[in-house]
Design a protein around this nucleic acid. Structure first.
Length: 718
DNA sequence: CGGAGTTGAATTTTT
DNA sequence: TTCAACTCCG
């Protein structure tokens, strides 16, 4: 990248007052603009650091931004506000929790904790879990929260009996959270907005403080985040947002692309700046990316250009199966390494985590060190969640969810029946405090009484430790006191991996306790509560494997994108919606534009999915990439790209030789009642196509009509 | 209460 | 294929 800022970048850095929408193409130096702008505010405009607020997409990006600004102004760690929406919300709530009736040592429930809470509520209502899948309820509740709908309003607006029950669960869920003195993920943002709405004095205090508000990755903000931004920038009106509508890939999570498309309509006098010079990729990569993305309709439009040379052609590999694809990737990486590439300059991207398995196998066979970002995430592993459960309970004794989680881990002879009795006897009280109430345990048999009380004493001892010792010391004590290592040894098959993970967690707390200003348990729990996968990407000498979503914001000298097949990228779920199809295209675009020098695209004609083989056609997106940028190779030498495109065009025709069960299955008929694990009850409205191409349209209450490929949709019939 | 064994369901992406 | 949840028995 050039040292000097180009004219557009320079304008974006120096024009400080008012509203700015910066449309920054991939690799156009947007991070640099953001950091230079903040440095400019501090250095030239003499703005005091705590009056600047910046939002980033990950914690890692936040840390980087702070470090880069620090470097630019010559301060170690300048204390301006920078973080994700969630971590900023958390920071505000820690200070203000009292005014909305929470104790400020509240816990943060991750997805798993909330799901357990919902399961528990459903069970207590006597419902069968498979009739009311907790994940559906969680989604529904999350949507209500993000739309700022209270449980009471949800109940009023309920259209049918099912929605009434869901609203009822929503109400109970909120009350339980309050009782456990906990916030869930959504609360970290919605509660701030709620607080600001109810209490104008507090809102104004923050709005006055933040003279300058900056937002990175603006295309992936959702409606409520926009409300939060608007509130925080309401006093001074200096709002600077940077984004790229072509890189919006979180629509499925509620990101509102309208935020960026209509920003200038929302705020009069918005200045729009376009950054279109790409400093990252070579000519061929850029040309191919441009050619791909023009196929999308919903965009503001810009065309990236570069001074760089065309560089190497994009390599296209047609492979026989996923194993062949994986070994092609590995062999190509080996040759890059011989050519002087570092392992950490290479990344392999895929659409779904499930694709990583074949890649891992190939990497292991080739003795190639790799690192998976995401997958079964570290903090979601059973052994980690068990230990964190203890830590959370010690930190917040009202945490009933984690009380239930750990009371019988390792087994203490407190089973289902005893726990149920404990809960019903406790009534409205929190479990641990109930147990500690004089006389409460009289209801129980002596052996149960003994077991529960010793658990309570164990927690009490740990609580005492947590008051004066570091997170590391508390965790070590937990592991010793419950003989957790012996417990892991009971299952030799998993012992090694699990012990390694436990040691890793210990190392993590040790590092934290040594370097953090506040080494306490509470501080540690807060730190890890919002951690994401990319945050853990260290500069290690390993090839990185990750999903396309996880690659956002990163860059590598060489990029491999695998599984470029119809049904994988684009994914099946996007087939019936133009908007979702465009999001798939953007996802591919994000992946391609991560590459600085070399880009490898791979597809396989068959793939092991779920224990059986499926035949796949090459992705339609490959047909959108100009031939002149590409060099095609692969096992089927006789089949060139044009031929593949032709085959792909035929994909909609019924494959008469390949009649699947779906075709013969007369259950797929209009009017049939089906059940889908994510959308619940639905009715088939239309059936079209035959064989593997057979699609069914299903109408779900609350979700509208969705279209599925019959042979893949996880339906059950009623 | 806890373990072994069986059954059935699952794969889209995650702050 | 793999994993979680459920059932049944000691």
């Amino acid at each position: 990248m050039s040292i000097e800022l180009n004219p557009q970048q320079s304008e974006a850095v120096r024009a400080t007052e008012g509203r700015y929408l910066v449309l920054a193409g991939a690799g156009s130096g947007k991070t640099r603009v953001l950091t230079e702008r903040i440095a400019f505010l501090i250095r030239e405009k003499k703005i005091s650091t705590e009056r600047i607020l910046a939002f980033t997409f990950t914690n890692k990006a936040a840390a980087e931004m702070r470090a880069r600004v620090g470097k630019s102004i010559g301060t170690q760690s300048p204390p301006f506000w920078v973080g994700t929406f969630h971590s900023t919300g958390l920071k505000i709530l820690r200070r203000e929790a009292k005014s909305i009736g929470f104790n400020n040592n509240f816990a943060i429930y991750d997805e798993d904790d909330s799901l357990n809470l919902i399961k528990d509520i459903v069970k207590k209502k006597g419902w069968k879990l498979d009739e009311y899948p907790p994940s559906i309820l969680r989604n529904r509740i999350s949507r209500w929260k993000n739309a700022l709908v209270t449980p009471e309003e949800a109940l009023e607006k309920a259209m049918d009996a099912v929605e009434e029950l869901q609203a009822d669960v929503y109400g109970r869920y909120c009350r339980e959270l309050k009782k456990c003195n906990a916030f869930d993920f959504d609360d970290l943002i919605t509660r701030v907005v709620e607080l600001f709405t109810v209490n104008h004095r507090i809102k104004e205090r923050y709005a006055r403080q933040f003279k300058y508000v900056l937002v990175d990755e603006f295309q992936d903000t959702n409606t409520i985040q926009m409300v939060m931004i608007d509130m925080l920038a309401s006093m001074h009106g200096n709002l600077f947002v940077v984004g790229d509508e072509d890189q919006a890939i979180y629509g499925w999570r509620g990101a509102a692309i309208e935020n960026i498309l209509h920003f200038d309509r929302l705020y009069e006098n918005t200045v729009i700046i376009r950054l279109e010079e790409n400093y990252r990729s070579t000519g061929n990569i850029l040309e191919a990316s441009n050619a791909l993305i023009v196929n999308n309709i919903g965009r503001k439009g810009k065309r990236l250009w570069t001074r760089k040379e065309a560089g190497d052609p994009i390599r296209l590999y047609y492979c026989e199966d996923d194993g062949g694809e994986a070994s092609s990737v590995r062999d190509a990486i080996m040759s890059l390494l011989r050519g002087g590439y570092g392992r950490n300059e290479i990344a392999v991207l895929y659409r779904t985590h499930a694709q990583s398995r074949a890649l891992e196998t190939a990497m292991m066979r080739g003795g190639l060190p790799y690192q998976i970002i995401g997958g079964v995430r570290f903090y979601e592993r059973k052994e980690i969640k068990d230990l964190l459960g203890y830590l959370k309970l010690v930190n917040n004794p009202d945490d009933d969810v984690n009380f239930r989680r750990v009371i019988n881990v390792p087994r203490r002879g407190i089973g289902k029946m005893t726990l149920e009795k404990l809960e019903s006897t406790a009534g409205e009280k929190n479990l641990l405090s109930a147990v500690r109430q004089p006389g409460f345990m009289d209801e129980f048999t002596p052996s149960n009484r003994e077991r529960i009380e010793s658990f309570s004493k164990l927690i009490a001892a740990l609580q005492l430790k947590a008051m004066k010792e570091t997170a590391y010391e508390v965790l070590s004590s937990v592991i010793d006191m419950i003989s957790y290592r012996n417990y892991l040894a009971e299952d030799p098959a998993t012992e090694q991996v699990r012990s390694e993970n436990v040691e890793e967690l210990l190392n993590e707390t040790k590092r934290f306790s040594a370097y953090s200003e506040d080494p306490s348990l509470a501080a540690f729990l807060e730190e890890i509560s919002l951690i994401s996968d990319v945050d853990s990407l260290k500069g290690e000498e390993k090839v990185a494997l990750m999903t396309l979503h996880n690659s956002k914001g990163l860059e590598f000298r060489a990029i491999f994108i695998t599984g470029l097949e119809e049904g994988i990228l684009p994914h099946y779920s996007s087939f019936d919606s133009d908007q979702e199809m465009e999001e798939e295209r953007r996802l591919f675009y994000v992946g391609m534009t991560r590459a600085k020098e070399k880009l490898f695209l791979l597809c396989a004609s068959s793939r092991m999915q779920f224990g059986n083989w499926t035949g796949n056609h090459p992705s339609r997106f490959l047909g959108e990439i100009p031939d002149r940028c590409c060099l095609v190779s692969g096992r089927s030498q006789t089949v060139d790209k044009k031929e593949m495109d032709r085959i792909m065009d035929d994909a909609d025709c019924p494959a008469d030789h390949d009649e699947t069960a779906a075709r013969r299955d007369s259950r797929f008929r209009v009017g049939a009642a089906v059940f889908h694990p994510s959308y619940g009850e639905g009715t088939i409205k239309a059936v079209e196509g035959t064989g593997t191409a057979m699609k069914v349209s299903v109408n779900f209450t609350g979700y509208g009509t969705k279209k599925f490929l019959a042979s893949y949709a996880p339906f059950t019939f009623r």
